[in-house]
Design a protein around this nucleic acid. Sequence first.
DNA 1: AAATTAAGTCATCGGTCGATGACAAGAGAC
DNA 2: GTCTCTTGTCATCGACCGATGACTTAATTT
Lengths: 199, 199
Amino acid sequence: MTYADFMQRPKRRDKAATRAALLDAARLRFARQGYDGTGVREIAGDVGVDPALVFRYFESKDRLYAEAVHTELPTGLASGRPLTDLAATLLHDVVFADWEEFDGEHPLLVMLRSSGRAAVRDRLRQEICEGYLKDFTERMGGDNPALRAELVGALLLGLGVMRSLAGTPALADAGFEETRELVTRVVAALSEEGPPAAG
Amino acid sequence: MTYADFMQRPKRRDKAATRAALLDAARLRFARQGYDGTGVREIAGDVGVDPALVFRYFESKDRLYAEAVHTELPTGLASGRPLTDLAATLLHDVVFADWEEFDGEHPLLVMLRSSGRAAVRDRLRQEICEGYLKDFTERMGGDNPALRAELVGALLLGLGVMRSLAGTPALADAGFEETRELVTRVVAALSEEGPPAAG
DNA sequence: AAATTAAGTCATCGGTCGATGACAAGAGAC
DNA sequence: GTCTCTTGTCATCGACCGATGACTTAATTT
C-alpha cells in the first residue's frame, strides 16, 4: 500500500471526532489569524473534510468562533488566598502557560486579536471584569481598591501581550520564578498604603 | 437649494484633500474594525468618492493601512528624565490621550486589533522594542534592567487595553493624576533593589 | 475658446466569502 | 442481503473582495 493509498483510504465516519477536530483546527486558525482572517474552507481543509460540515455541526462561523474560544472562567481563584498568590497563579496561566490548543496563547489574548468585532469585544470585557477584576478587588485593601486591582490586571494582561505578541527578549529569556518575584513586588507595592505625599 | 441639491453639487477637485480624507476615514475604520474587517469600498464610501481612487493614491490596501497607522516614534523621550517621568508621559499618551483620528485609541492598540497579520505583528514588535523598551532599559538601573523595563512597558500597554478595550470601570472613572500616582509607585518599586530574600 | 492635464467615475475581472440544499456513501439493524 | 439512518460530498447561490484600465469631467494653460 503506497502512501497515497494510505491517505486516500476511506476515513472512518465519526461525528464526534470530526466535530472535535474542526473545533481544534478552528482554535488554531482563529488564534493565529483572527476571526476575519480565517475562512471556513481553511478550517475544513485542515481537517480534510468538506466545508459544509462546519455549518452542519456549528450552524454558522460566528457560533463556531464562540464555541472555539469558550473556556470556563477559573473558579478556584476565590479561595481566600492573598492577592500576590492570585497574581502568581495568573502570571503562570495567562503569560507563561503554553495553551497549545490556541497556538500557545491564552484565550484572552486570542480574543484580543479579533476585537474588531463588537461581540468579541463585549465578551472580552465581560470575562476580564467578572472573571478576574472582581476577585482582585475583593483582595485589594486600602483606598480605591478597584483602581489598584485594575493595575494588577493590566500588568498581567500587558505581560501576556508583550511576551506572546511582541516577543520581547527579556521576558522570553526570563523564567517564571524570576518574573514572579518582580510581579509580587509590584503587587505588594500596590497593596500597601500609599505614601502621604507622593506627588 | 435643497439639502439633496447641496449634497449633490459638484465637488471641488482637490487631490491632496481627497487623499487626506481617505487616510482619515481609513484610520477610523481600521481602528474600529481591524484590517480584515474593513473594505476599501467602505472607506471610499465614507469620503464619498469612488473606491478606485484608493488604489490610485495608495496603490494597495496594504500600503493604505501602513500609511494610516504610521506615526513617528516619540523622540523626546531620550532626554535624561527619570523613568518615573517617562512612564507618566507614556501613561498620558498611550492610555489617557484621546487619539481621535484613531477612534480614541493609541496606534499601538489599534495595531493590536489587526495583529492577525504577520506584517502588523512585526511592526508592533519593532515599535515596542525599539521605540520604547530601549529607553526604558537605559533608565532602569539595578539587576536585569531589561526585564524590569518590560514590566513597566507591560503595565502601560495593559492599561491601554483595559481602558480602551475592556472599558473597566475604575480606570474610566479615575483621573490621570490618580492613576499616575499609582504607576509612579509601581515604577519606583521596580527600580529599587529587590529584597535580599524575596521568595 | 481650444487644448492639455489632472481628478474622479464606471464597468468589470477573477477570486473568495458564508451559507444552502440536493445528493452519495458508509454503518448498523433486521 | 436489504433497508434505513447518519455522515460526508458536491454544486451552487448571491454577495463581496481587492484590483485594473478605459472613460468622463473639471480645472488649468495657452
